[in-house]
Amino acid sequence: MDRIFIQGLKVAAVIGVHEWERRITQTLCVDLSFAADVRRAAASDALEDTVDYAAVAARLRALGEEAAFGLVETFAERCAERVMTEFDVSWVRVGVTKDVALPGRTEVGVVIERGVPPESAP
């Protein structure tokens, strides 16, 4: 199975467990890959024969604007759910990174996978 990926997508969101974080918008960095059979699109050279990664990116940015999140884990899970349901994807890997105020420049994040990995598919 082929994979489509989006790396370094910037998403603005209200996210964090501290009170001060609930009053600001922070920028998350999202890395996403998902299973897709791109043979038909490669043959037709037509956008309608593949998953439109611009549409996926727009939906994830909208997700960041729609709700506040306490944890990056929650945001990653919602991203996976949205991609799988709205774009009929059977497997997705979502990585979400957030800068945190610790000594030095620190990033924290999570990587989750949902669905059947392409290697496991028949």
Rank of each mutant, 00 (worst) to 15 (best):
D2M: 14
I4R: 11
F5N: 13
I6K: 00
I6G: 00
I6A: 00
L9H: 04
V11I: 04
A12R: 14
A13C: 02
V14K: 12
V14T: 15
V14S: 10
I15L: 05
V17K: 14
E19Q: 10
E19V: 04
W20C: 11
W20D: 10
R22C: 09
T25G: 08
T25P: 00
T27I: 09
L28S: 00
C29R: 12
V30L: 04
D31M: 08
S33E: 15
S33F: 06
A35R: 08
V38T: 15
R39E: 11
A42E: 12
S44R: 08
S44Q: 05
L47N: 05
E48D: 14
D49E: 05
T50W: 03
T50N: 01
A54P: 01
A55H: 10
V56G: 01
V56N: 00
V56Y: 02
R59Q: 11
R61C: 11
A62V: 04
A62F: 02
G64Y: 13
E66C: 03
E66W: 00
A67D: 09
F69E: 05
F69S: 07
L71S: 02
C79Q: 01
C79F: 04
C79P: 01
A80P: 02
A80W: 03
E81R: 13
E81M: 10
E81N: 11
R82Q: 09
R82G: 04
R82N: 09
M84E: 10
E86Q: 14
V89G: 03
W91Q: 06
V94Q: 03
T97N: 10
D99G: 10
L102Y: 15
G104T: 04
G104S: 06
R105N: 11
T106K: 01
V110C: 11
G115I: 03
P117L: 06
P122F: 07
